Computed example of a mutant assay.
Amino acid sequence: MTTSTNCPTIILVAGHWLGAWAWDEVLEHLWSHHLRATALTLPGLDPDDPDRAARTLDDQAAAILDAMARLGVSEDQPAILVAHSGANAPASLVLDRHPELIQRMVWVDSGPLATGSTFAPDFPLAELPLPSIDVLASQASLEGLSAGDLERFQSKAVPEPGPVLRQPVELTNYARRTVRTTLLCCSIPGTTVLQLAHAGHAMFAEVAHIEHLDILDLPTGHWPMWSRPRDLAQAIQAAASRTD
Rank of each mutant, 00 (worst) to 15 (best):
D149G: 07
A14T: 08
S146N: 04
I133V: 15
I64H: 01
P121M: 11
W31H: 15
D149P: 09
A61H: 02
G86A: 13
L216A: 09
W17E: 01
D109I: 04
S146R: 04
A199K: 07
S110R: 00
W21S: 08
L18F: 10
S155D: 14
F119Y: 13
S146C: 04
R180Y: 00
A238V: 06
H16I: 14
E25R: 07
M203E: 10
H84T: 08
A61M: 00
S32H: 14
A37I: 01
S241T: 10
W23E: 11
R180S: 14
D244W: 09
W21H: 11
S146D: 06
R52M: 06
D96W: 03
I102M: 05
S85Y: 05
P189G: 00
L30Y: 04
E127F: 09
L184S: 07
T181P: 03
I210P: 02
L57N: 03
S227F: 04
Y174H: 12
G15Y: 02
D214M: 09
S141Y: 08
T118A: 12
R176Y: 01
K156Y: 08
Q167V: 00
G19C: 11
S227T: 04
H212R: 12
L216H: 14
E100P: 07
G15K: 04
A37W: 03
G19I: 13
I10F: 00
D109A: 07
V26S: 01
F204C: 11
D109S: 05
A140Q: 12
T38N: 02
E206N: 11
A53Y: 03
G162E: 03
W31I: 13
L136M: 15
A233G: 03
A235D: 12
V179T: 14
A157N: 08
I64Q: 08
T115G: 13
D76L: 12
P219G: 08
E75G: 15
P47E: 05
W23N: 06
L165Q: 04
M105V: 09
G111C: 10
A208F: 01
G44I: 09
F119W: 06
S241C: 08
S110F: 01
F119D: 11
N6E: 15
G19K: 02
L125H: 15
L18D: 03
P90E: 00
L150E: 10
S117H: 14
R166F: 12
R230G: 06
S227E: 11
H33V: 07
V179H: 07
V82N: 02
Q154L: 10
Q77K: 14
L40W: 00
T5E: 10
L194W: 03
V207C: 03
Q139N: 13
T182N: 09
A238D: 13
E151W: 01
P112S: 09
D49M: 05
L35G: 01
V26R: 01
L165F: 03
S155Y: 07
W223L: 14
Q167G: 05
P112T: 06
L12Y: 06
R177F: 11
P43V: 12
P219I: 08
H201V: 02
A208W: 02
A89P: 02
A235C: 12
A69I: 00
T38K: 03
N6S: 15
T172C: 12
I210V: 12
